[in-house]
């Protein structure tokens, strides 16, 4: 798998992401600068990592979504390229219109740094192939604005088309209000594009890829990607 991570001013989880991809693929992906106007040829996956691009000023991800490289990322996605946006990366995908809806301030109005559990809603995507449907995995969340919002019609459409990839749940897999710490609509933690090739999620599976650090709950997501491209 040929992956690349985009670096924006204020990005801060690019090294975590690089380590996770390295663990799954055996090599460290290059970092691309936000002012670049083109992506390298032959890329399989573009990753928009977590952080505070442009300090989260104005709205999280809003200014990054307007940066030169995002035009190339949109074209890449339109050609059927795979894009993973985590945390601030998910916010950018929403701001850039690559995924519907928006990420609002957490319902508690506080930054939330804690573990959450997510239920895998579909396992037939390039991002989730190594999970089972209904499987629950743990990940770190660390965000102030992760409260997913879309209007009711959009939410119904997303549900109808099966584009909800991950939902906040209890460790036992129940989708409850208590498990939904940031207040997201319908417990949505991760969302897919209609072609299933763009995934945005708020929590950080890249922080759970190493048994010596905090377990490997998040590793299947990266292994799924590596596997889909190894097979291709």
């Amino acid at each position: 798998m040929k992956a690349a991570i985009i670096l924006f001013p204020g990005t801060n989880r690019e090294r975590d992401m690089a380590l996770a991809l390295q663990r799954a693929t055996g090599h460290r992906p290059p970092l691309l600068w936000h002012r670049d106007t083109e992506l390298p040829a032959g890329l399989d996956l573009v990753v928009l990592p977590g952080g505070f691009s442009y300090g989260d000023y104005l709205r999280c991800g809003a200014m990054a979504a307007q940066s030169p490289i995002m035009r190339a990322v949109k074209e890449f996605a339109a050609r059927g390229g795979h894009v993973l946006g985590v945390c601030n990366g998910f916010q950018m995908l929403a701001e850039a219109g690559l995924l519907p809806g928006a990420l609002l301030r957490n319902a508690s109005l506080r930054f939330l740094s804690m573990d959450c559990h997510m239920r895998v809603e579909r396992a037939d995507t390039p991002f989730t192939g190594r999970f089972q449907r209904g499987q629950v995995f743990r990940a770190t969340m660390a965000h102030g604005d992760g409260n997913y919002f879309a209007d009711a019609a959009t939410l119904d459409r997303l549900e109808g088309e099966g584009l909800v990839a991950l939902r906040y749940a209890t460790p036992q897999g129940e989708v409850t209000a208590a498990a939904n710490r940031n207040g997201s609509a319908r417990n949505i933690a991760g969302l897919l594009s209609p072609n299933l090739r763009v995934l945005g999620l708020m929590p950080h599976p890249e922080n759970q890829v190493d048994p010596e650090i905090d377990g490997t709950d998040g590793l299947p997501l990266f292994e799924s990607l590596a596997e889909s491209f190894a097979a291709a």
């Binding site: 104005l58 709205r59 701001e95 519907p100 919002f149």
Partner: peptide, 9 residues
Amino acid sequence: RKLLANTVI
């Protein structure tokens, strides 16, 4: 329209 407001929300 372009940046200052997100017209989704």
